[in-house]
């Protein structure tokens, strides 16, 4: 599904990602964890080319995104993304947030887009908020709308960039629950998170990044219980 080969990203002379290679299979849920400043978010943002890799290859669904000939806007339609700060369109109602891109980019009819949007809102438990504006929603509700908005494009893959970090503690669960349902439905997911519970319980694999280096990757139980590297062990010691 996703193949990352020798990915390197520099901001000026500052190397934020060094030579990262990994693979995410179809239907797999991968958590990306690590201390702040380790390059987790940058790694995620490189997958849909919100950040342009300095070097290396990103292949999604057999399409090389880093190839200059690739129509990157078209490729992004199949990659949903959820941000830490939601980034809902504040001047559009919840329903319009969900139908705008399907209608304008995928050329769906208004009726079809609205029907799908209502389905998705039901799935995230917000059917009654269709006509509300984002400013009237709580953080947890905003994030659930943001997830539904990304799903409305019927992506093959979902990227989550610290989806619960900006939420009040009591709202974290409602968002994680939606993400769990999504994981169980077979969606391919890459999740940058500080929620170790989620990583341990839901993820099929954990990637541990530190200083831009992919230090360790593995299946969550063994990673959390018996990390192989010193750096992962000391990180886990601090946060668990």
């Amino acid at each position: 599904m996703i193949k990352v080969e020798h990915l390197t990203k520099k901001f000026g002379n500052n190397e934020v990602l060094s030579d990262i290679s990994t693979e995410i299979k179809k239907g797999e849920v991968v958590s990306i964890i690590g201390p702040s400043g380790s390059g987790k978010s940058t790694f995620l943002r490189c997958i849909n080319l919100l950040e342009k890799p300095t070097d290396g290859k990103i292949v999604v669904n057999n399409q090389e995104l880093t190839d200059p000939k690739t129509n990157i806007m078209k490729a992004r339609e199949q990659i949903g993304m959820v941000f830490q700060h939601f980034h809902l369109f504040p001047h559009l109602s919840v329903l319009d947030n969900l139908t705008y891109a399907p209608m304008k980019v995928r050329k769906e009819s208004k009726l079809a887009a609205q029907e799908k949007a209502m389905d998705l809102l039901a799935k995230v438990g917000l059917s009654d908020k269709a006509d509300a504006y984002p400013s009237s929603l709580s953080g947890g509700q905003k994030q659930r709308v943001a997830i539904a908005r990304a799903l409305a494009m019927e992506p093959e893959l979902m990227l989550f960039d610290e989806p619960t970090s900006a939420l009040d503690p009591e709202m974290v669960k409602e968002v994680l629950d939606v993400m769990k349902d999504l994981a169980h439905s077979g969606m391919t997911m890459a999740v940058v998170t500080h929620e170790m519970g989620f990583a341990r319980e839901v993820a099929d694999r954990v990637l541990f990044l530190d200083h831009g280096v992919l230090v360790e990757e593995g299946e969550p139980t063994s990673f959390f219980d018996a990390p192989k590297t010193e750096r992962a062990a000391s990180f886990l010691e601090k946060i668990l």
């Binding site: 806007m73 992004r76 949903g80 993304m81 700060h85 369109f89 891109a101 980019v105 990304a150 494009m153």
Partner: peptide, 26 residues
């Protein structure tokens, strides 16, 4: 907010529509 542009890009919304429908109205 720069995030508005990023959200629109991530949804595959092309430059013109991004400007006329998302950024300029705000």
């Amino acid at each position: 907010d720069r995030g508005q542009t990023e959200a629109a890009i991530a949804l595959g919304i092309p430059y013109r529509q991004r400007m006329t429908d998302i950024i300029l109205p705000q």
